[in-house]
Nucleic acid binder design. Sequence first.
RNA 1: GGGCUUGUAGCUCAGCUGGUUAGAGCGCACCGUUGAUAACGGUGAGGUCGCAAGUUCAAGUCUUGCCAGGCCCA
Length: 1040
Amino acid sequence: MSDTQDKYKDTVFLPKTDFPMRGNLPEKEPEMVAKWQEMDLYGKIRQASAGKPKWILHDGPPYANGNIHMGHALNKILKDVINKSWQMMGYNAPYVPGWDCHGLPIEWKIEEKYRNAGKDKDDVDPLDFRAECREFAQEWVDIQSEQFQRLGVIGDWRIQEDASGEQVGGPYRTMTKHGEAQIAREIHKFLDNGGLYRGVKSVLWSTVEQTALAEAEVEYQEHKSVTIWARFPVVETKIDVLKGADVVIWTTTPWTIPSNRGIFYNDDIAYAVYEVTEVAEGSKVEVGAKISIAEALADKVQEQAKITSMTKLGEFKGVDVEGTICAHPLRGHKDANGGYDYDVPAHMADYVTDEDGTGFVHVAPSHGPDDFLLGQKYGLEITDNLDDDGSFKEHVPLFAGLKIYDENGKMDAGNFAPIKAMEEAGKLLAKGSLRHEYPHSWRSKAPLIFRTTPQWFIAMGENQYLKKILDNITLGNLQEVKNLFEIIDEALKNVVLGKENAFYNFLRYLEKLSPEAMAILEANLNLKKGLKIYLSEPTLRDVALKAIEETEWHPEKGKNRIRAMIEGRPDWCISRQRAWGVPIALFVDKKTGETLKDEAVLKRITDAYEEHGSDAWWSMDAQEFLGNDYSADEYEQIFDIVDVWFESGSTHSFVVNDREDLGNGEIDQVDLYLEGSDQHRGWFHSSLLESCGTKGKAPYKNVLTHGFVLDEKGYKMSKSLGNVVDPLKLMKQSGADILRLWTMTSDYAEDIRIGQSTMKNTGDLYRRIRNTLRFLLGALDGFNAAEKVDLSDLSKLPELEQLVLHQLYEMDQKLRGYIQNYEFGKLAKELHEFCNNNLSAFYFDIRKDRLYCDDPQSFERKACRSVMAEVYNCLTAWLAPILSFTAEEAWAHRPEGVFDDSDSVHLRDFPNVPKTWQNPALAGKWFGIRSIREEVFYSLELDRKEKIISSSLEANVTINLKKEELALGEEIDWAEVCIVSAANTGLMEGDTYYTGERVETEKAEGEKCVRCWKVLPEVAGHVDHICNRCDDVVNKKQAA
RNA sequence: GGGCUUGUAGCUCAGCUGGUUAGAGCGCACCGUUGAUAACGGUGAGGUCGCAAGUUCAAGUCUUGCCAGGCCCA
């Protein structure tokens, strides 16, 4: 028997293919990347889709330092899958990747290099320094480019230059000449439309290095500060007990006393006034002094001030302090020339507590972020008392020239002199010291101070003219105020009304004004008119909020997030005192403080950037920009650089608009921005503001966000936890396609986890899909155009083939729907289920008999293979966006002359699946058949347990149909569907049944056909132990 | 501390406006096959739906609090 078995084994048409079962992806993928580069796949795709409608995903630029991590991988894979999907749906979907090249982290790296070489950055020519930064950034651009391509991302990666050295096409970078020029132009647009203004902001400042520091350059170290308790005599108050008393404040920065302009209290704190009745030796307080402090802190203050006894005169609530005005402790000082005779008003501040100090906080708006912000709210003066090196300026009474820190960062006279002056004036209650965490420069290790410095802002909300009025009123510059009123009157000519929110904002704005300011305002401005001008111009905030509503956010919750941020954010500070970036490129009139707005000058600047890059700002002479109309001596050249977020926020302008292959000046909103959810604060945000400010609308129609990659347990990845997953390693171990499949089967809208079990899971999914492709290729061995049957007349096909075509149609529809609705998460799962359910477990399983054993010339077998070819045709295309390497490999193994001749699967579109294939009635019918089949399997399983049968072909079954199913008995070959040797149908009694009645199984009678393995009575009649069908196929055909 | 947000089987995910014994795929166990063979088919075991109160005739689904995560701010 084994002889005959061997004899017939060769007559079985088993699947045959070179497409290996195991992917060996780590080795094959890089070869494929090289091939794609060599054949210029991206260029070919562009050529092939030249006439198609554009669909544009605009790439958000990663920062060009360091190897890529899982977050990059997730992001770029998603972009690639989505882009390829739209491309294959019939669009022209170019992908131009980009990099963010300027900014602090790179600057540090180069600085660090200098430090290690014992050099100081300040001794290096800025142009040399920038050249090194540029080189560093480019190195990482090149590395990351390789790594992204290794992921299978197809895009415009090649940096090509034309004869003049100008880049043609290729990825974008914020540091190219054109990029820098356009960024400067965008800044100038804000200058032109009035959005840009010069204001002040509290920054951390090093008096040793004489420069502002970014938060990330700051180290917090222990520092010993001198602390003082100072007395501010009450001048005016509605609290009786407070009259004639001194409010006591506590501070760790005595040098800020000359810059004091206010006192903060908290509504919720309980305060009291105490009369000193007895003091210990060394106390600085006189008996009879009346001091006011928070009740909760009375004991501490008493001890510190060496007061042995004091009596409480009365209590009051913080909320009643409003309206109280104090005198500066140095008021009336004989040598101060009245310099400290101004009033010090008390105001409410949430951040004041009664845990430390006195419950009252002294406010120097120029020297603390809270002081500054609240000081602005209450209209407190921004003083300008300190020079860059931390010495008091000439105009500061008593302390001019004294430095607060010496060149080594040690406390100096500027810190001590104010203490001494107050002590002499009898206004020092006590003195002490405190060790606490304090910001230091990570370079010089010197302690830092807060300093309010001039910065450039883009206005979000309040009309900038009104803002200027306010600034000028508090500074007392009345002439300036009057000029502004004229501007407003001019603008009043174009007034449009009708915004309630803006109205309320305006009222709030007025509330901030001091009575004096209000008086000036009323005297000079018709309030109604002011209201009109304010309401007439929608603010940047208004425009941005409207744009948010007009954008589709996926998932939708992203909208809430960005809306809340835009609603609440302050004006955008776009200036940085740094070297590696795009200079803001402005000139300010030294006399008037006005920013020069001459178009010719601005154009000369941006032209120079275009030709030489923004290095021109340093390399060229200011007069070259200013031309003949202005003198460089009269203008301050602004060397601040622009916030990198402004740069990346401008990419829609210098990438999308300017490129022929993208917007080409015609598309001002791209289809999609796609980044991590942190970019609500970052790129989505800055791009929105930048675009709303210059174009009045968002740069995008859709925004899709993804979550963060966490470790297996859902914790953030960190070096210290040792749970970091490296995509580069992972690709070496498993391959990029595994990573891609993992991405697409996860719910990337949320944070997603990665670890051993998720990777194993993904590997299993991958193998199933790969094997489906492999089986298809095996089954299509030798298939050619001649064998292909005409699929236009579906009725001629067996129902099962019709069903599969219907399923292809359904799958195609779902796929396109998911893509259009940005539901890519469902796509991979659906494809996997399709392979698993419809193909492997059903169609393939049933059709194996036909494929292996039927006559190759039979119509049925040809029909089956023709349908298989359609399945293959669809599946390779459908999988291409996700399993880009595997689909390409499978496509390369296709039978010749049957499919289109695209050199790469990525040059294809999704096949056009005709609607005529749709057949819901048939699908419904077969849904019923499948459930009956499941019952048969259940019964067979029982027999198998009892050892009656092993293979299902050893069984015959009888299926009892319900009355309404009776037709199925005639139409369906149940033996084929259930993969048994023979099947009968009968009528089921009654309306209900249990499994025993529904299906009856028995051991098949007869002998096993050595060729097709069915057990049939007829086999006994053949010498070779084969069935009639097999006999026909093998012997009769051969004979004929 | 604030804004937004997540928590359903070992893993990845479904569960619409509250309504019968909470679903799928993978994995796992077992069986079959050895002609998709480091593959394929079948059967089955896995969940007090993060925890605790509450609203309701009825809650995974609504409310509140708590716990554990995440992003962005302070």
